[in-house]
Structure formats: C-alpha cells, structure tokens
C-alpha cells in the first residue's frame, strides 16, 4: 500500500491533483456560510482565472522548451489597446480586427523567439526586453489613455460610440447563465495547447528541445522552429487574453496585464511543470490554474484582506514546489 502510494506520488499529475483536492477541501470547510456550495461561486472563480489561464497555456509551451516568457502581461496590454482602438474607435469589422490583433501578438512572440534562437539571448533577458518594449508600445499607441467608448473630438469634447457586439458576446454567460464566455475561450486555449503538445510532431519537438537541445538537434529536430513555435503561440495566447480583458473591462487599458506574467508562471509551476524544461503538460497547467483560482476565491469569500492573500499565495507556491521535489528522494 505504501509502495503503491509512493509510486502514485511519483507522477506529477497525481501531486497536482492532490494539491487541488486539498484546496477544494479547505473551501468546503471554510465555506463562508455555504457560499462555496453555490455554483455561482465556482462560475465566478472560473471567469476570474480564465485570463491568467489563457496566458498560462502559452507559458506552458515556452516552459517545456526550457524557456520563460516574461512578456505575456505586456503583450496582453498592447493587444488590449490595439483591439480597443481598432474595434471601438475605428469601428473595423471583427473579421479584420481579430487577425490584426492576434497577428500582432504572434509577432511579439516571434521577436522574443528570434532573440532567443538566432541571437542566443537567454530567454529571461529576451522576454524582459520584450516586456518593457510592449508596455511602451501600448502606452504610445493609446497616448497613455484608456481606450473606451468615449471618443475625444478635435475640439476636446467627448462623444460616445456604441461598443461592437463582440463586447456583449464575450462578456456573456452561456448555458443558462452557468458559465462565462471567457471560460469557454480558456477551455478552447487548453484544447489548442493539448493538441499541439500531444498530437503534433512539433509538440514532441518542444519536449525534446527543452529536454536536451544538443541531442534533439542531432536527431534532426528543428530546435529553432520548435522554440519559435512556443514563443509565437505564447504571443498568440497573450493577444487572446488581451481581447478577453478588454471585453471584461469594456475598455482597452494600456496598464492592463501588469505582473500577470508572474501569475501565469505561478500557475505553471504549481501545476508541476518543470522550469528546467522537457517535462510538463497542459493538464498540469489546468490543475495549477484551478488551484490558484480556488485559493483566491476561498480567501475572498472569507473576506481575507489582499495582504493575507498575497502572502498565502507565496506560501502555496513554496508548498507546491516542495511537494514536487519529494519524487527525487
């Protein structure tokens, strides 16, 4: 029995699930007079964690290649501003806006990826510069203003335009009000990531590149392509997250997404993805996202102040990493 348990615990997903169940149990105990028993609590948790989770999908791909992407939060902010300007102020049709915004996100990711592959920058440094640059881009593009339905006229007065319909679609609750549209977007991103990692040849190449780049290259693996794919997808998901964020805030805020990259990394790490690369999976990231989501939710329904929440989140990350380390003993 002991042996069976220890062999189970050597699997990362079992440990991630264990952490999630633990948090869930805590929620059941500190249920804030039954609030934890209501579906609306879970629905809201899922909505609140969705944007972070979407970022974490891209982060998972990058982490598996042995890299890190610090730029996702800034690219989110840039995409948010770009999306708001194109769709609200310029009133372009959705079919034109989406490719432009998503393409811009991918381009940001590819720049980071090119710095890492062609110029041999360390991923931390490459994406740190992209993080600073993209934030600057967002502020320059927006002139430092939040882009909302209030449009400034040449004479300084404001006129109001209608928000395009996508703002209502994506901010809606579906299936009888039981799930938020952004949560469905998050699930879509999880499925895309799963498909890339588990079904595509390039998915295997991501693991191989992160596990041992020299061996991968000598096995004919296009390691440059694999890395570019990871950072490119990271940019893509950042843009998706930027659109979702804009829709929820009903405006494009150049300051949005600040420090989101850290939450995305925390989600991946709590799930058990190895920062040294070569190991991990999207299932782990999903469990990491739910763990973080429930943690935040349980603390907020119990009215724990933000200071306490932050400190507890830090402790949980340490606990999660310690839990993962048990296997090497």
């Amino acid at each position: 029995m002991k042996l069976f348990l220890s062999s189970c615990f050597s699997k990362p997903w079992v440990r991630a699930l264990f952490a999630l169940v633990l948090i869930f149990a805590v929620g059941c105990i500190f249920n804030a007079d039954g609030a934890f028993g209501r579906w609306s609590t879970h629905r809201d948790m899922l909505r609140q964690v969705s944007v972070y989770g979407i970022l974490a999908c891209g982060m998972t791909l990058v982490i598996i290649t042995g890299g890190i992407d610090l730029a996702v939060g800034s690219v989110l902010g840039f995409s948010a501003v770009l999306f708001a300007m194109l769709s609200i102020h310029l009133g372009l049709p959705l079919l034109a806006v989406l490719p432009i915004v998503l393409g811009a996100g991918v381009a940001c990711g590819l720049v980071s990826g090119t710095l890492v592959t062609r110029w041999r920058f360390q991923p931390f440094v490459a994406t740190l510069s992209m993080m600073v640059f993209a934030r600057g881009l967002a502020k320059w593009l927006s002139g430092g203003q939040k882009i909302s339905s209030a449009v400034q006229q040449p004479d300084g007065s404001y006129s109001y335009v209608d928000l395009p319909p996508i703002f209502d679609w994506l901010d809606a609750r579906l299936l009888g009000g039981n799930i938020s549209a952004v949560t469905l977007v998050f699930i879509g991103c999880l499925v895309i990531t799963w498909f890339v990692l588990c079904k595509l040849r390039y998915g295997r190449y991501l693991y191989a590149t992160g596990g041992n780049e020299a061996a991968a290259r000598l096995s004919g693996v296009p390691t440059v392509g694999a890395r570019l794919l990871a950072y490119g997808m990271g940019g893509f998901f950042s843009a998706v997250a930027g659109i979702c964020q804009t829709v929820q805030e009903r405006q494009g805020d150049p300051e949005s997404g600040v420090s989101y990259e850290l939450t995305a990394i925390a989600i991946a790490v709590i799930g058990g993805n190895s920062l040294t690369g070569g190991r991990g999976g999207i299932g782990l990231t999903l469990m990491g996202a739910l763990t973080i989501g429930y943690l935040e939710k349980i603390l907020s329904i119990n009215a724990v102040p933000e200071s306490g929440r932050l400190m507890l989140t830090g402790v949980i990350i340490i606990a999660a990493v310690l839990l993962q380390r048990r296997k090497e003993a």
């Binding site: 693991y207 191989a208 992160g210 596990g211 041992n212 020299a214 061996a215 000598l218 690369g277 070569g278």
Partner: peptide
C-alpha cells in the same frame, strides 16, 4: 549529452 533526451 547528445544521444538521448533523458527526460523523455
């Protein structure tokens, strides 16, 4: 070093 990917 260059033959296997030990994590896989």
């Amino acid at each position: 070093g260059t033959g296997l990917i030990l994590d896989l």
